[in-house]
């Protein structure tokens, strides 16, 4: 299936380490492994979901792909072009193809710009179309995300969270990108508004054919929108598979626990919940071997010592666990 097609984006061994300067006598340098060697591909027109708990490195990974922050190792290829060390000028061009939607619909829009200016900003930055033509295109975009044309003259604070997220989506779509990296695009919204935005994103994808990298801690939303899903834990992807396979037969013990932890909105269903002990360890001192070993109910001696390999368990279901 996917094997035949060329990936749109290919990420290999991506790493982002932060060097923290702790004070004190010896000025000990510690390294925070925000993203610690992750690999995945995004195919044209598909949605790849990236889930994990707070601090596991989702946002960092997303921002590295756009070079909004510089990765410390690894490589990224967009349509076969290595963009890991592309020049600033070249990245400007690449960003026409990759756009970003942020989590917070309140702070991600400039409060002093009108909606029309915000949505048309990519045209201005890249010197694409002007005058009546630009206005028409802006109005088309605004209309496409379900806002009225008169919204163009108004300011972000006059809109609700869901409407602001629509404005962000319109801006991201202005240049017909091939990939949109969406970092928690619905997490800050009310439940009834989340489904409006999710439906809109899926509709737009069917119509325009772009791919999404959909980053979220909300598993239900990720499941709904994604074709494939990767699960992150402490800077690593521990499992990646087709959505159905991942949710119906998770192979990694962390995925299994994560899925069982989500409360099901149906009081008739009684489930056994796997309660993980303790907290996620600090990315400054990740556990040796398998990073999940101190919380894993299947941990074996080998898990403490050797890091499990990232392998295909069959049918494109990737997992890193000694059990598999």
């Amino acid at each position: 299936m996917n094997g035949q097609r060329r990936p749109l984006l290919e990420v290999r061994n991506l790493e982002k380490h932060y060097v923290l300067n702790e004070g004190g006598l010896f000025r000990k340098k510690t390294v925070l492994r925000a993203v610690d060697g992750i690999s995945f591909s995004v195919f044209p027109g598909e949605t790849l979901g990236l889930v994990g708990e707070s601090g596991c490195g989702k946002t960092t990974a997303g921002k590295c792909i756009l070079r909004l922050i510089e990765p410390t190792a690894g490589s990224m290829e967009m349509e076969g072009e290595d963009i890991t060390r592309a020049s600033f000028a070249r990245m400007r061009e690449v960003r026409k193809k990759i756009q970003f939607i942020f989590q917070d619909p309140y702070s991600s829009l400039n409060p002093r710009m009108t909606v029309g200016q915000i949505v048309g900003e990519p045209f201005a930055i890249h010197g694409i179309c002007s005058g009546v033509e630009r206005r028409k295109r802006i109005e088309r975009l605004v209309d496409r995300v379900g806002l009225s044309a008169e919204s163009c003259g108004r300011y972000p604070h006059e809109f609700s969270g869901g409407q602001r997220q629509r404005i962000g989506i319109a801006r991201a779509l202005a240049l017909n990108p091939k990939l949109v990296v969406c970092d928690e695009p619905v997490s800050a919204l009310d439940v009834s508004i989340q489904s409006q935005v999710l439906n809109l994103m899926m509709e737009l994808q069917r119509e325009l054919g772009m791919a999404y990298l959909f980053i979220s801690h909300g598993l239900a939303a990720v499941k709904h929108i994604s074709k494939r899903v990767g699960v992150m834990y402490l800077g690593k992807i521990v499992e990646l598979a087709e959505t159905e396979a991942l949710f119906s037969s998770p192979l990694h013990p962390y995925t299994e626990a994560l899925l069982s932890a989500i409360p099901v909105p149906d009081p008739e269903i009684a489930r056994e919940r796997i309660i993980l002990e303790g907290d996620v360890p600090s990315p400054v001192h990740p556990p040796s071997g398998c990073r999940f070993h101190n919380r894993c109910r299947y941990a074996m001696p080998v898990c403490r010592e050797t890091e499990p390999e990232w392998k295909d368990a069959g049918g494109g279901h990737f997992v890193a666990c000694h059990l598999r």
Partner: peptide, 19 residues
Amino acid sequence: SIPRLDVREDQLGTIPGNV
């Protein structure tokens, strides 16, 4: 309008408009 883990749905229900 809640996406479910245990049920497959192609389109989520929505409540139009805003609070």
